[in-house]
Amino acid sequence: MNRAGRLLVGGVGAVGAAGAFALVALPNALGDAAAALVAFAGNDYLLAAGVASVALLIVVAALALRGADGVTRTTPPEPETVQNAAHPGVEFDRAVEDGSWNSVGRDGDQETVRERVREAAVRSVMHREGVARERAAARVDAGDWTDDDVAAAFLSEDERTSLTARLLGPLSGPGFRRGAKRAADEVCRVEGVADERADVENGPRAATDGGRR
C-alpha cells in the first residue's frame, strides 16, 4: 500500500477510535447515537459482527500484501567465489544456438547477427589477402571467399536483397540459424580458431593443424 493509502486507512481508524472513546467517556454528549446505531443494525451482536467482518477483511488484505512483498532486507554480497560473467560471443550463441522457433525471429535480430558475421568475414578477407575494405566486401558479396555455398549465400548482399529472401526472411528461422552457424564456422576456420572440444575428440594433431588452441 502506498503512503496515501496508509494515511487514509490510518485517518479512518483514528476517527473511529476517537468516536468510540467519545461514546464511552461522554455517553450523553452524543445523545442516543449509540442506541440508534444498535437499532440500525438490529441488535448489538450484529453491530459487533459487522465491525469484526471489516477487521477480517483488513487482516486478509494485510496478510496478502505481506505474502506478495515479503520483508525488505538487503541481500549480502557473495564473496566466496569469483563473480560469474558471460563469455564473449554469448549474444551470438543465444540468438543462433537456441533451438526455440523465435530465437532470431525478428528482422532486427537477424540483421544484427548477420552484420556481425559479415563484418568478421570482410575483415578476415582484408587481413588474409591484404586488400581494401571495398574489395573485401565485394568478395564476400560475390561469395567467392569460401567454398561453403551455405556460408557464402548467408553473407551475400545480393542474396539478402532478393525478393524471395525478403518474403521468406521472417519465416525462415531454422534456415537463418543454419546459415549463421555455417558462416561463423567458416570465418573461424579460415582464421585458424578451432573448436576446443573437437580438438579433444580428434586428438592433439587436430589441435595443431591450424587451430589456435
Partner: peptide, 22 residues
C-alpha cells in the same frame, strides 16, 4: 583475454578480438 573456443559465439568473438589486436 576472456575468450573461449568452447562455443560457436566464443570462437567468433575470438576472431573479432584477434582482428582488433592486429
Amino acid at each position: 583475454d576472456p575468450t573461449t573456443t568452447a562455443t560457436r559465439g566464443g570462437r567468433l568473438a575470438t576472431v573479432e578480438r584477434d582482428d582488433r589486436i592486429r
